[in-house]
Deep mutational scan, measured.
Amino acid sequence: DHWHVHIDGERIRLDGASEEFIRTLEELIRRGTDARELKEIIKEYLR
């Protein structure tokens, strides 16, 4: 599956992301997590 998110107007691909990770991201977004912080979390995950 190819997922991607838009954060700060930037399109970030989440290739190979699990549904669990996507749900976690959605939860963080709902909580109002800062965009820079979200991008860091995604970069760490994709390593």
Rank of each mutant, 00 (worst) to 15 (best):
D1K: 10
W3F: 14
E26Y: 07
R31Y: 08
E20T: 11
R47K: 15
E37L: 14
L28A: 08
E10R: 02
A17R: 02
G32R: 00
E44Q: 09
K39C: 01
A17E: 02
S18K: 05
E26N: 07
T24I: 10
K39H: 12
S18R: 03
I41R: 09
E20V: 04
R13M: 13
D1S: 11
Y45I: 03
G16P: 03
K39G: 06
A17M: 08
D34T: 15
G9C: 05
E10Q: 04
L38M: 06
I12H: 04
I41M: 13
E27S: 09
D1Q: 11
T24R: 13
R11P: 14
D34V: 06
I12D: 01
K43V: 13
V5N: 02
R11N: 15
Y45C: 01
K39Y: 13
D8P: 01
E37F: 12
R36C: 07
Y45D: 01
G16M: 07
H2V: 14
T33H: 07
R36W: 14
T24Y: 15
T33G: 06
E10P: 00
R36Y: 12
E26R: 11
D1E: 12
T33Y: 04
S18Y: 02
L28R: 04
I29G: 01
I22T: 04
R13E: 15
R13D: 15
K39L: 15
T33Q: 03
R47P: 09
W3G: 06
R13P: 14
A35E: 09
I41D: 00
G32V: 03
H2E: 12
E19M: 14
E19C: 05
H2I: 13
G16C: 06
R36M: 13
H6G: 04
E20L: 09
I41L: 14
D1R: 08
R47Q: 15
H2S: 14
F21C: 01
H6Y: 12
R36N: 14
H6K: 10
E19L: 14
E44I: 05
D15G: 05
Y45Q: 04
K39V: 08
I7G: 01
D1N: 14
I29S: 03
I29P: 00
H4V: 15
K39R: 13
R13A: 15
L25K: 00
L38G: 00
D15M: 07
E44V: 07
G32Q: 05
H4W: 15
I22R: 11
R36I: 11
I42W: 02
L28Y: 09
H4S: 12
I22H: 05
E19G: 09
T24A: 12
I12W: 10
A17L: 05
I7H: 01
D8R: 02
E10M: 04
R11A: 03
L14Q: 01
E20W: 11
D8Y: 03
Y45E: 04
E20N: 09
R36K: 14
R47A: 15
E20P: 05
W3I: 11
H4K: 03
Y45M: 05
V5P: 02
R30K: 12
D15Q: 10
L25D: 00
L38T: 01
G32M: 06
A17H: 04
L25H: 00
D15S: 11
E20G: 09
T33I: 13
A17W: 04
E26A: 09
A35K: 08
A17C: 12
